[in-house]
Design a protein around this nucleic acid. Structure first.
Length: 288
DNA sequence: AGGTCAACCTGAGCGC
DNA sequence: TGCGCTCAGGTTGACC
C-alpha cells in the first residue's frame, strides 16, 4: 500500500489514541513479519507512554518513555485500525464496535492504550516491520542511516535534488524510488510527479536540466501534500485507521491509467512500461 | 561503486 | 467452480 501520504494518513489516524497515551497491553499473534519480532517485544512496550508519534520516510516512529522507539513499516499491504469507545471514539470521530475476539488471521499485532483504544496491525503479505530501537541512536541505525531528505522539508530544493542526482545513470523514475535520494516516494507518486512536471521517466537522472528540476521538485511537494489532504490513495489495501478510504486515487492523472487518454488532452494514450521491475505510467507525447 | 533483478508473501482478477 | 497465470502501494541481498 503505502507511500508517504498513506503512511502520514495512518500516523494522523492513530495519533489521537497513541500519542501521550500508555500502552497497557501488547500482543503479537505470530512470530514474525518481514523479520522476527524483537526479543521481549510485548514486554518492552507494556506500561510505557508514547511521548511522540512522528514519521520518517515510510516509517512511523513512536518514541517511548523507556528510551526506545517503536519503528513501524507497513510494507505493501500493512494497515492499522483503531477500535475505540466513548471519549476516545469521539476523538477519532468514529465508533468502531468492539469486534470481540473476532480478529482476522492477518491481524498480527494488537496494541491497547489507556485512551482507551485498541490498535490492530494487519498485514496479509507480511512485508511490514516492527522494531524497537534506542531513540538516541535511531538515525545511525541501519534502517535510517542512508535514508535521504524528506521531500516536504524546505531544504528539499531543485538545488538539493540536482546534487543528489548528479552523474546518476539510472532512469529518473528509478532514482526517485531510491529512498537514499528522496525519502517516502513510491511507485504511484513518482509516476504522478513526473507526469505533472512533463519529464519522461526514461530520462537519465543525471541529465535533468536546472529548469526541469525546478518543475519536478514543486510537483513532488504538491502531489504529496494533495494526497495527504485526500487521506492517501486506496487501491487495494489502504484504509485510514477509522476505516474510511483515501480519496486520492480519483485524482490520478497517469497511474493505473494504461490505454486511457492523456489528461493533458494531447490525444495520445497513457503507456505502461516496466522499469527496474516496476510499472511506470506516462504520456510519451507530453513527457520529454 | 553503481546499477539491475529476483525473492520475500498472500490475495484479487482474468482468461480458459 | 476451478485452475493457472499475472499483478500489486516496498525493501533487500545477491549478482553483474
Amino acid at each position: 500500500m503505502p507511500e508517504l501520504p498513506e503512511v502520514e494518513t495512518v500516523r494522523l489516524g492513530i495519533a489521537p489514541v497513541l500519542e501521550g497515551h500508555i500502552i497497557t497491553q501488547a500482543q503479537t499473534r505470530r512470530g514474525d513479519l518481514r523479520r522476527p519480532f524483537p526479543k521481549d517485544f510485548a514486554a518492552r512496550l507494556k506500561g510505557h507512554k508514547v511521548k511522540r508519534l512522528r514519521r520518517r520516510a515510510k516509517y512511523i516512529l513512536a518514541d517511548l518513555d523507556s528510551g526506545e522507539t517503536l519503528v513501524i513499516h507497513l510494507g505493501m499491504s500493512g494497515r492499522m485500525t483503531v477500535q475505540a469507545e466513548g471519549k476516545a471514539a469521539s476523538k477519532i470521530g468514529t465508533y468502531v464496535h468492539d469486534q470481540g475476539e473476532g480478529l482476522s488471521k492477518h491481524d498480527h499485532v494488537v496494541l491497547e492504550t489507556d485512551a482507551p483504544a485498541r490498535i490492530l496491525f494487519n498485514d496479509h503479505r507480511r512485508f511490514g516491520l516492527m522494531e524497537l530501537i534506542p531513540t538516541e541512536t535511531l538515525e545511525k541505525d541501519k534502517l535510517f542511516r542512508d535514508i535521504g531528505i524528506e521531500p516536504l522539508s524546505p531544504r528539499f530544493s531543485a538545488k538539493h535534488l540536482a546534487m543528489s542526482l548528479a552523474g546518476k545513470k539510472t532512469p529518473i523514475k528509478s532514482a526517485l524510488l531510491d529512498q537514499r535520494v528522496v525519502a517516502g516516494l513510491g511507485n504511484i507518486y513518482v509516476s504522478e510527479a513526473l507526469f505533472r512536471s512533463h519529464i519522461s521517466p526514461k530520462r537519465l537522472a543525471g541529465s535533468l536540466k536546472t529548469n526541469e528540476m525546478k518543475r519536478l521538485v514543486p510537483a513532488i511537494k504538491k502531489v504529496l501534500r494533495d494526497a495527504i489532504k485526500a487521506g492517501g490513495s486506496s487501491l487495494r489495501d489502504h484504509a485510514r485507521p477509522d476505516g474510511a478510504l483515501g480519496e486520492f486515487q480519483h485524482h490520478f492523472l497517469v497511474y493505473d491509467r494504461e490505454g486511457k487518454p492523456c489528461k493533458l488532452g494531447c490525444k495520445d494514450k497513457v503507456r505502461r512500461i516496466v522499469q527496474a521491475g516496476r510499472s511506470t505510467f506516462y504520456c510519451p507525447k507530453c513527457q520529454k
